[in-house]
């Protein structure tokens, strides 16, 4: 009984959470803003990487493969720290926000590239043959036939990826960006009460829940059309 009371006092403390809420929400807004921007750059760069990787031309293909393997194979936390602490030595001074944005965009581009590649390669060969036999060139075929269909197929996995990115943005707390987790940490330290972590976890859940619902919805809808 005593332990349960302690658990509630330290991890579900209503008054601590209530006081911290405005600060936490400010952190949450930054988390959302940051994640959208990182996803935006990740999608653009990821699409370029995917097309490079599919290409038969070696100077496009191999750098893309190397890039993807490197960013998927090394810890994101180290990429973030490198961008923040190491880049200044070669004259690139980035604020925590921009260093984090750089690392997370580059990192998510690697994952997004693989999603796009799978989506593009899932389009039946017959689609490309039909398009080419009408006289459309490679880029017209990509632009009007392959990508519109691939984009529909990759929306669910892309949204999944976005959920992961949003949670990964909590790693920015190590380079002093006051996003949601860092906000929770600062108040937890100040009040000597980690209830704010619980609150932060719920806020993450509240943000991601509609997104995962969106994935389910899209998956069902595309099943009907296909």
């Amino acid at each position: 009984m005593e332990n349960l009371q302690k658990l509630i006092r330290y991890y579900f403390n209503y008054s601590v959470i209530k006081d911290a809420l405005p600060f936490l929400l400010k952190g949450a807004v930054l988390t959302i803003k940051f994640s959208f921007i990182a996803e935006f750059f990740g999608v653009i760069f990821g699409l370029i990487l995917a097309i490079m990787k599919i290409s038969k031309i070696k100077v496009f293909k191999y750098p893309s493969i190397a890039y993807i393997e490197f960013f998927r194979g090394t810890p994101l936390l180290m990429q973030i720290m490198f961008a923040y602490y190491a880049l200044p030595y070669i004259g690139i001074n980035l604020s925590g926000f921009f260093a984090g944005l750089l690392a997370l965009s580059l990192n998510s581009a690697a994952y997004i590239a693989e999603i796009f590649r799978a989506g593009i390669e899932s389009i039946e060969r017959g689609q490309i043959e039909a398009s080419r036999s009408l006289g459309m060139n490679f880029f017209q075929t990509m632009r009007y036939i392959v990508l519109p269909q691939a984009l529909r197929r990759v929306t669910p996995p892309l949204t999944n990826d976005f959920i992961i990115l949003l949670k990964d943005s909590s790693l920015l707390s190590v380079i002093a960006v006051v996003e949601l987790l860092r906000a929770a940490k600062e108040i937890a330290t100040w009040k000597v009460n980690p209830s704010t972590y619980t609150a932060a976890a719920f806020i993450y859940l509240l943000i991601t829940l509609p997104l995962s619902q969106l994935v389910h919805y899209l998956e069902r809808r595309y099943k009907i059309i296909d």
Binding site: E124, G126, Q127, E129, A130, S131, S133, L134, I145, P148, Q149, R152, I225, D226
Partner: peptide, 12 residues
């Protein structure tokens, strides 16, 4: 022009 066995219409 070519017409294929499996149509290959653009579904979108």
């Amino acid at each position: 022009g070519i017409v294929f066995q499996l149509f290959n219409l653009f579904p979108h």
